[in-house]
C-alpha cells in the first residue's frame, strides 16, 4: 500500500506533549543542578503528593476543555464533596464506604447539572460554571456551618497511607492518581468515545452531522468530570485528614493552569490527558524546586503565571501556523 507512516521526527514534532515534556525535563535538570536534595525518590514522592489533588481535578478539566468548554466550579465541587463524605461519616455515623459513595454521587450530580445547563439552555460553560462555583461555595459553607470536620474514620484516610517502593514512601493516593491518568489517557486515545470528545471540541456541528449524539456526549463528559472531582475530594480528605470547607478555592484556576501547560488548547479538540499530568508536574516541580532553592513562594506564583502565558502563546502561534 502506497501510504507511508509519518517519519519519527515528524511524529515527535507533531506530538502536542513534546514541548511540555521537554520543559519538564529541563526544569528537573535545572533544579537537580541547583539543589542536591531535588533528585531523590523522597522528594519526587512529595511532588506527586503535592500535585495529586489538583492533578486529579485537572483530569476532569481536560475532558471539559477538550469539548471547548471550561469548568470554574471544580474546586468548589470538590470541597463540597469532601464535606459531604466526612460529615456523613463522622456526624451521621454512615459506614465510611457509603459516605464516600455519597460524596462521589453528589459531585457527579453537580457535574450533571453543569452539563445539562450547557446542553439544554446552550449557555457558555464559562458562565454556567461561574454560577455553579458560587452556588456550591455557598452550599459548602451553609452545610458545614463553617466548621472543619475532624476525627475521620481510618478507612477514609486510607489513601493518605504509604507503601514502600525501593526505599521511597509512596502514598496509595499518588498511585490512584497515576492510574486515573492512565485510564483517561486510554479512554481518550483508544476508544470511540474519546474520538467523539475530540470531534465535538473541533466542531459540534461536524460531530452532529457525522451521527455522533453530541448532546448526550456533552452531558456525559460533565458528569464524568464531576465524578472525577469526587475522587479528588477523597484524595484531599485522605491527604489532609479533615473535611475543610475552605479547601480548593484556587484549585479551579490551578487545574486550568495544569491543562494549559500540558499543551491542551483552550479552543477545544486538541490535547491529551498525559500532557495534563506533565503540566501538573511542571507546576509541582517549579514550586518544589524554587522552595528548595529558598525562593519566596510569591515568586513561585509569578513564574507559574509567566509559564501559563507562554504556553497559551505557543498554542496560539501553532494554531495560526496550521490554519
Amino acid at each position: 500500500m502506497a501510504v507511508m507512516q509519518a517519519t519519527l521526527p515528524r511524529r515527535i514534532l507533531s506530538t502536542p506533549t513534546a514541548g511540555p515534556l521537554a520543559a519538564l525535563i529541563l526544569a528537573c535538570a535545572f533544579f537537580a543542578f541547583k539543589s542536591d536534595q531535588f533528585l531523590t525518590g523522597g522528594n519526587f514522592s512529595l511532588i506527586i503528593q503535592q500535585v495529586m489533588v489538583v492533578g486529579t481535578l485537572a483530569i476532569g478539566q481536560t475532558l471539559i476543555i477538550l469539548t471547548a468548554g471550561i469548568d470554574l466550579s471544580n474546586g468548589a465541587i470538590m470541597a463540597f464533596g469532601g464535606i459531604v463524605m466526612t460529615k456523613l461519616a463522622v456526624e451521621n455515623g454512615l459506614p465510611p464506604l457509603l459516605a464516600i459513595a455519597a460524596g462521589l454521587a453528589v459531585c457527579a450530580a453537580f457535574g450533571l447539572a453543569n452539563g445539562l445547563l450547557v446542553m439544554k439552555i446552550n449557555l457558555p460553560p464559562f458562565i454556567v460554571t461561574l454560577g455553579m462555583l458560587n452556588v456550591v461555595f455557598a452550599l459548602t459553607h451553609i452545610y458545614s456551618q463553617d466548621q472543619t470536620v475532624t476525627n475521620l474514620p481510618p478507612a477514609m484516610t486510607f489513601l493518605g497511607q504509604t507503601f514502600r517502593v525501593g526505599g521511597t514512601n509512596v502514598t496509595y493516593g499518588s498511585l490512584l492518581t497515576i492510574l486515573l491518568f492512565l485510564l483517561f489517557a486510554y479512554l481518550l486515545s483508544q476508544t470511540a468515545w474519546g474520538r467523539h470528545v475530540y470531534a465535538l471540541g473541533n466542531s459540534p456541528e461536524v460531530a452532529r452531522l457525522t451521527g455522533i449524539r453530541t448532546r448526550r456526549l456533552i452531558v456525559g463528559v460533565y458528569t464524568l468530570a464531576g465524578l472525577v472531582y469526587g475522587i479528588a475530594a477523597l484524595l484531599l480528605v485522605s491527604r489532609t485528614g479533615v473535611g475543610d470547607p475552605q479547601a480548593g478555592q484556587t484549585d479551579n484556576l490551578d487545574s486550568i493552569t495544569a491543562v494549559v501547560l500540558g499543551g491542551t488548547s483552550l479552543f477545544g479538540g486538541r490535547g491529551t490527558v498525559l500532557g495534563t499530568l506533565i503540566g501538573a508536574l511542571i507546576v509541582g516541580v517549579f514550586r518544589n524546586g524554587l522552595q528548595l532553592m529558598g525562593v519566596p513562594s510569591i515568586y513561585q506564583t509569578l513564574i507559574t503565571g509567566i509559564l501559563v502565558i507562554l504556553a497559551v502563546t505557543v498554542d496560539q502561534l501553532s494554531r495560526r501556523r496550521t490554519r
Binding site: 474520538r195 467523539h196 475530540y198 470531534a199 473541533n202 461536524v206 460531530a207 455522533i212 479538540g269
Partner: peptide, 15 residues
C-alpha cells in the same frame, strides 16, 4: 474534524 487524522475522520461515528 480538523485536529483528527484522516483515518479517524473516515470512520467518525462508525468506529
Amino acid at each position: 474534524a480538523a485536529s483528527l487524522d484522516i483515518a479517524t475522520n473516515m470512520f467518525l461515528g462508525r468506529e
